[in-house]
Structure formats: structure tokens, C-alpha cells
Design a protein around this nucleic acid. Structure first.
Lengths: 248, 248
DNA sequence: CACACAAATTGATCTAGATCATGGATATAA
DNA sequence: TTATATCCATGATCTAGATCAATTTGTGTG
């Protein structure tokens, strides 16, 4: 059966991508993205250094661990995951990224990317070459502040994730995760209760420090209890309040 | 028995703190800290906005979750831990901070601190009021870049910690932790193999997502195997290579 | 210096969630 | 369309590390 269309679509349509060169001014992600608060002149300068990428297909890499760091990326449409690995090959999904969110911020201090970024579905990005960004940033304090704010936000998110990984039970982890997704969809103008999970159960499990089987079981349990309703990748949060209460 | 003196002292003596107003130029932490790369004029301006704090005693808070965000702090001497909590009171130690390291970076995007910072021993800090920092930052791109770099570095560290929390066994966690401490001591000009653990076993356990008892047992095991030698808070890493191999 | 309290160690037991195993559902490709 | 690989769900079993319990050691404080 084909995926039904009664839920929020994946993020493919969020940015206007008919033309490859939508200016930041005209981008529907404007208020979620870096340019917020920049004046027209500055915005134009920023526009000039941005490369709008071709599409990335599901599974395709934006960059890999140990590649040399060159650019930051902002998701324009679709979604990505980032991973890092131990020397003996175990992998941790460190984050999921949706339109308007930055990828690569953890590489700024380094010559090399610290993680691998892969598309979860057909996706596109804006590429910001870091050296040129620094150049124009010298005359745009507001841009620097935006960048700092971005980094700080991601940092705070990662600390919460540490709390989740270190101290929460499997149910609490899943409930917290679903509500975090919900909020991000809502912030992007979509339904807070009905959306598509672009990542696999395996990715979710890995990200939350669980086994796939555990995620499956808890999803089933949540369904039995009427908390959510799940049809493949389409999820609907039926009882936000009870979910919130489950977050710990 | 009193603590023996044959190991690296705690960080109390690292910064020259006889006078409350050591200029950044003269501070022994200079090369680890923010001012790196600033010119003399800029350095003087930075100096002017910094408040050097009185001492914080063991257990004393620098700030608490939900306090309004005002300043960033750099550890001058001693050490701190930061924690965040779930709504029902469970707590996660999100980080330990040593001289030259920044505390509060995750609050920049917010009105409120996202965590609580407590001294682990007698400690002191430099306080950087964030609004004034932004003010002078407008004319000091190098300062902004330093800040960005700091944030990025902490971000990368947190991602590694996610890998640790999500994918490593208890032994691997402890080995990884000890080597991370070792590196940070070494970077500060101290022995990479002999130092004092200023944090309790409980703090370590919490930070690594383990129970205290587990940490105790693994420390004992590591001792039996000749990997480390432990006397209260004083630790000596006897076999760095084997420890490295244990990190996963 | 001795009291009281907090931190650490060690052993015994228990359990949340991992791992193993199987079958069904989905997706991709020729 | 069928082949083939991957993903997902669910049951049975196992185990790493948590929890509980009892000492021991360390550490402020009057």
C-alpha cells in the first residue's frame, strides 16, 4: 500500500526549490535560519557565498568523518542524520536535522569533520563555505551572534540528550523523542501531532541508546494504550498530555 | 591519613591568584583561554570587562538552572561540575570544567542558564558579562572566532560523550574517562599519568551513566589488573596503552 | 580528638533491556 | 511482476549492570 497522504508530507516541499537560486529573502525558511536580523545589504553578501546544492538521495553522504572541513550546511528540504563511530566500528546517531537546522557546527574548531552526515530521504542543503563566512562575518557582528546562538542551542540540546541517555528509561526516551520531533515540526508550520518519521526504527533506537526491538515493542505498547497511532512511518500523537507526563 | 603530596596538586595553584587582578597578558592560562590571538589593544579592552571572582568553596554554585543568564565564566583555578535535571528530580552531570575552560556556553541562546554549575573544590573564575562581551566583540572578529571555536569544541566533546553513553560498556566508559582527564591535565602542563580526581565516585558514575558501585568495582578491577593505582582521590595511570585499547 | 555523617568498597540478588530467533511486511531493482 | 534485501514486530531467553545490604574508610566540625 502506498503511503497515505492524510498526514504532513516529508519536508521535501518546505523550501521553495523550483529554482536553484531562491534568495535568502524569499526563502520560506528565513525566520528559522541564519539570516534572521540581517539588513538587506548584509543579506545580499551572505546570499553571494551560499551554494544551493543539488538533491541528495536517501543514504547519500553530505560529508564523512575525517573529510576535511570546508563548509557548514543548512538543511533546505528533507532530513539528515549524523553519526560518529568508535574505533572498533560501533556507531552512534548523534542527531537528526530538519529544514533550517545547521550541520557541521562541531567541526569548526578542527581541520576535519567529526561526524558523518547522511540524507534520510531526498534532501537539499545550502552550503556555507566557512572561510568566506568568517570573512564577511568580520563586518557583520549580527551574523556572528546568530552563529553563536545556533551553536549554543545545539549545545543545550545535546546536554538534554545526555540526560536522556544517562538517566531515562526506554519509555521515557521514546516519549521525549516523539515530543521533541513534534515541537520541531510545529516550529516549521506543520502539525504537532501528525507527521512522518523519515528515519528508520533502527536510527531512532541507536540515537536513544536502545535496541531496535525495544523501540518496536514500546511503539506497540504506546499504541495499545492509545497514546499514539502508527502506520508504517506515519505517526499521530493522540494524547500529548499523557506523553508529556511520560517524559520523566 | 593525609593526602600524600607525590602527585600533581589540584588546580588551586594553576593561575596566579595572589592578586585579584592578574591581567590576561600575565595569566598562566593565556594560551588555553579566550584571549589567544588578540592584539594588545583588544586584550586590554577584554581585560576591562572581566571580573575576577572571589573563591568558591566546595559545593558552592556559580549559577543554577533557571537563573537568568548574565555571564560566561572561565575557570581560573580549581574545578567545577555542571548538572541538569529531569522534572522529577533525577540529575545528570553534563560536564567537568578545569582551568581555562568555559562554563555557561549552552545558555547564550536563552534568557536562562540551562544547567547548574558547582565547585568541586576551592575554585575561582573569571566572569565575562555576555552583553559587554558582545559589545566589544563587534570590533574584534578574532574574539568572536575564539568563542565560536570554544563552542564548537565543546559540541564535539558532547557528541563523543553521546557515543560513550549510548554505545560503550562500563569498562570502556571508565577507561575513556580516565584518558580524557589525562589529556586535559597534560594540556595544562601537568602529568598525564598522575593526578587527583577532584570529583567524587558518585559524580563520575553519574556522568558516565553508571551506578557508583559499578565505578568502584571497575576501579578495583583496573587496579587488580595493574592498569591504574588508586589511593583515595589520587590516581596514577600505569598502563596508558592498555587503557587506550580498552576505550572501544 | 572524637563524634557524626558522607563517601567508598564489596558481596548478593534482581531486572530492564539486550540478544537471539522467527515470520511477516516493505521497498528496490530488473 | 517477481526476486531479494532490508525493515519491522513479537516471543523466548540471557546478562550487564542496577539495586539492596552491610562494612569500612574518610572528612569536616564542635
Amino acid at each position: 500500500m502506498a503511503q497515505s497522504n492524510n498526514v504532513t508530507p516529508l519536508f521535501n516541499d518546505l523550501a521553495k526549490i523550483e529554482h536553484d537560486h531562491v534568495a535568502c529573502q524569499d526563502c520560506s525558511l528565513y525566520r528559522l535560519c541564519l539570516p534572521l536580523g540581517l539588513h538587506n545589504n548584509d543579506l545580499t553578501k551572505l546570499d553571494e557565498i551560499i551554494t544551493r546544492s543539488q538533491n541528495y538521495k536517501r543514504g547519500q553522504s553530505l560529508f564523512s568523518e575525517e573529510n576535511s572541513f570546508k563548509s557548514l550546511y543548512v538543511v533546505r528540504s528533507g532530513s539528515f542524520k549524523t553519526t560518529i563511530s568508535t574505533s572498533n566500528g560501533r556507531e552512534q546517531v548523534t542527531g537528526f536535522y530538519f529544514p533550517g537546522e545547521f550541520i557541521g557546527l562541531d567541526a569548526i574548531h578542527h581541520e576535519l569533520y567529526q561526524s558523518t552526515a547522511k540524507a534520510l530521504e531526498s534532501s537539499s542543503v545550502c552550503e556555507l563555505p566557512y572561510d568566506r563566512l568568517q570573512e564577511i562575518g568580520k563586518e557583520m557582528p549580527q551574523l556572528q551572534i546568530q552563529l553563536l546562538t545556533r551553536l549554543s542551542k545545539e549545545l543545550a540540546g545535546d546536554k538534554s540528550l545526555m540526560l536522556l541517555l544517562g538517566k531515562k528509561t526506554s519509555k521515557e526516551k521514546l516519549a521525549t523523542y516523539l515530543l521533541s520531533l513534534s515541537k520541531r515540526f510545529h516550529d516549521r508550520g506543520f502539525s504537532a501531532t501528525e507527521f512522518q518519521l523519515s528515519m528508520s526504527r533502527g536510527d531512532i533506537a541507536n540515537h536513544l541508546g536502545l535496541a531496535v526491538e525495544t523501540v518496536s515493542r514500546i511503539f506497540s505498547r504506546f499504541q495499545d494504550e492509545g497514546l499514539i497511532s502508527l502506520d508504517g512511518k506515519a505517526i499521530s500523537l493522540q494524547e500529548m498530555d499523557r506523553l508529556k507526563a511520560l517524559c520523566g
